[in-house]
Design a binder for these strands. Structure first.
Lengths: 142, 142
DNA sequence: GACATTCGTTAGGTAGGCTAACTAATATCA
DNA sequence: TGATATTAGTTAGCCTACCTAACGAATGTC
């Protein structure tokens, strides 16, 4: 067994790995027609409508950023906005059928390369990755 | 035990986790005065001077993007440009001593933010992350 | 010497992020 | 009840990071 890794070592390597991973998948980006930020927001909406604030929190961006992003999605016909009946301040965002189709297709193109590489892993490694992803999401969400 | 995750699911969530992780650590960048792109370019220059084209290729961006980036680095005194003696078309870029110091410090701030979050994990989780990072590095390296 | 190629820059556009300041709606409480 | 505070989202304005197209200057080729 290797000596126990310090949080600092893991942080350093995790950071580096994340950069390299994203650079890798980014290469196929232009072919998808949908940006990473849009895909990511759409995937949150797959779980059902969200208020703009919830979306911003889920995506870990500020509200004005999400306002713009949703405007883009709306213009592209991928999402729709509705005022809440009970509280007229809130804006409810939902993905359209088209949005769901595009998400499916765009996501596929984006991660196909990554997926192909993961196929070479054995079940144990895959399970480790899965657990790690859960930990990362939790740690980052905070 | 949850049903075994498919490579596709893991790829999807891993991709998403990487996006969120980098968004998070990027927030400390403004305090360093150096952006992520600049840090990344600087780290390439640590390996010695590069032509602008080589830098662009290494960073997987187009030449005009790198032109601007290097102009910023130069303005900040972090890198220097020199015309090649043999071929007057090429521009050779090297990092300055200040650039190297700033790279070190900026990288540290990013890592520290992440590290702070990892401190909350127990030993098992940290070990899982460590193994996962190794797997990711191997998978992405190709 | 004419032409093609290569390297880098300029010009102009898009997306994605931020803060500050605003409007509108709702909640609180004297 | 009416004044005040809080909350949700938008607008305005700025920045960085990317892109393509078009260009100038230097070099290579025939």
């Amino acid at each position: 067994m290797s000596p126990r890794a310090s949080p600092r070592d893991v942080a350093d390597r995790l950071h580096s790995a994340a950069i390299h991973l994203l650079r890798r998948v980014r290469r196929t980006d232009p072919q998808t027609g949908v940006s990473a930020a849009q895909l990511s927001a759409l995937s949150v909406l797959m779980g059902g409508p969200r208020t703009l604030g919830e979306l911003a929190a889920a995506e870990q961006v500020r509200p004005p950023t999400m306002t713009k992003l949703v405007q883009e999605l709306e213009r592209a016909g991928l999402a729709a906005r509705e005022r809440d009946a009970a509280d007229a301040r809130v804006v409810r965002v939902r993905s359209t059928a088209k949005g769901q189709r595009v998400l499916q297709r765009g996501r596929e193109m984006r991660i196909t390369e990554l997926e192909r590489r993961l196929r070479g892993l054995d079940a144990t490694e895959l399970a480790t990755l899965e657990r790690a992803v859960g930990i990362i999401e939790r740690v980052v969400r905070d």
